[in-house]
C-alpha cells in the first residue's frame, strides 16, 4: 500500500498535495497528522506534516517519467517530479491550454519538464520571455510550498535545447572570426542564462576569451582574442597592462 509524507503550510494543503501525488481520492485514503502547523522558534512557521496511505494502490508516478536516479534520493526526486508536473499542468490548464502534455526527465541537479502543446509559440513568447516566466514562477511556487527543494527547468518542445545549440554555433562562428582578425567582437545583449551558455562553450577555446560588458538588460558577451586587454566599459580609457616595460604601471 503506497504511503506518502507531505509537508505544507496547512494540514489541508499537505493532505491535498499527498492525495494528488498518490493519485487517489480522500475517500480512498487514510490520513494521519504527524505535525500540526504553528509558529516555531524565531517566528519561523512550523510546517504541517501528514502521512497519507492510499488503500487502492495507485502508482505514484505516471508511466512516461524516465527515471535515472538511484537509491533513496530517487523517491524524493520522483515526488518532486510529480509535484512539479502537477503544478505546471494546473498552470497550463488555467492558461487555457488543457491539452498540453508534460514529459519529465531528471537531469544532474535539476528536473527537466518539457511541455508539448499546439500553442508552442505562445508558451515560448518573444525571446523566450513567457517560457522564462513559467520556469521562474514554477520554481517560486515549488520552493515555497515544499520542504524538499529541487530546481526545475521548463521547456517547450525542446526549445531550450535547440536554442542552446544555436547559441553555441553562433559563438563558435564569431570566435573563429575573432581568432582570424584579432579584433574583439560584441554580441547582442542576452540574459544571464544565455551568456553563461556562451561563456561555458568558449571555456576551452585556445584562441579567444569571453567576458561580459554593460549593465542589466544591456549586458552582453564580448569575444576577444586571448591576451588582449579587456575594455572595462564602452568608452573605457585603455589601462596599460603589463606591456614589456620594466616598471608596471598601476592602473589608477
Amino acid at each position: 500500500m503506497p504511503e506518502i509524507i507531505r509537508e505544507a503550510k496547512t494540514v489541508e494543503s499537505a493532505i491535498e498535495a499527498a492525495l494528488e501525488a498518490l493519485g487517489c481520492t480522500r475517500e480512498e485514503a487514510d490520513t494521519e497528522i504527524i505535525q500540526e502547523p504553528g509558529k516555531g522558534i524565531f517566528g519561523r512557521t512550523k510546517m504541517a506534516k501528514v502521512k497519507v496511505t492510499c488503500a487502492h494502490g495507485a502508482e505514484t508516478t505516471s508511466a512516461n517519467d524516465q527515471e535515472t536516479g538511484s537509491g533513496e534520493a530517487r523517491e524524493d526526486w520522483q515526488e518532486n517530479i510529480s509535484q512539479g508536473k502537477n503544478t505546471l499542468t494546473k498552470m497550463l490548464n488555467l492558461m487555457g491550454l488543457p491539452n498540453a502534455k508534460i514529459q519529465s526527465r531528471q537531469e544532474e541537479d535539476a528536473i527537466y519538464l518539457d511541455i508539448h502543446s499546439e500553442a508552442e509559440g505562445l508558451l515560448i513568447g518573444r525571446h523566450g520571455q513567457t517560457l522564462a516566466s513559467l520556469q521562474y514562477i514554477l520554481n517560486r511556487i515549488m520552493n515555497h510550498q515544499h520542504a524538499k527543494k529541487s530546481r526545475y527547468i521548463v521547456d517547450v518542445g525542446g526549445y531550450r535545447v535547440r536554442y542552446k545549440i544555436i547559441l553555441e554555433k553562433m559563438a563558435k562562428r564569431i570566435a573563429h572570426k575573432v581568432a582570424e582578425s584579432k579584433e574583439e567582437e560584441q554580441l547582442k545583449a542576452m540574459s544571464a542564462f544565455d551568456r553563461r551558455i556562451i561563456h561555458m562553450s568558449m571555456k576551452d577555446n585556445h584562441d579567444v576569451t569571453t567576458y561580459s560588458l554593460g549593465e542589466g538588460n544591456f549586458r552582453r558577451v564580448v569575444i576577444a582574442p586571448k591576451g588582449m586587454p579587456r575594455k572595462s566599459e564602452d568608452k573605457a580609457v585603455e589601462i596599460p597592462e603589463e606591456e614589456d616595460q620594466g616598471g608596471e604601471e598601476s592602473g589608477l
Partner: peptide
C-alpha cells in the same frame, strides 16, 4: 519586481490566447 513581472507575462500570454 521580478515576480510580478513574470505574473504579468503569464497573464499576457493567457490573454493572447483569447
Amino acid at each position: 519586481g521580478q515576480t510580478v513581472k513574470a505574473l504579468r507575462q503569464l497573464l499576457t500570454a493567457a490573454a493572447a490566447k483569447t
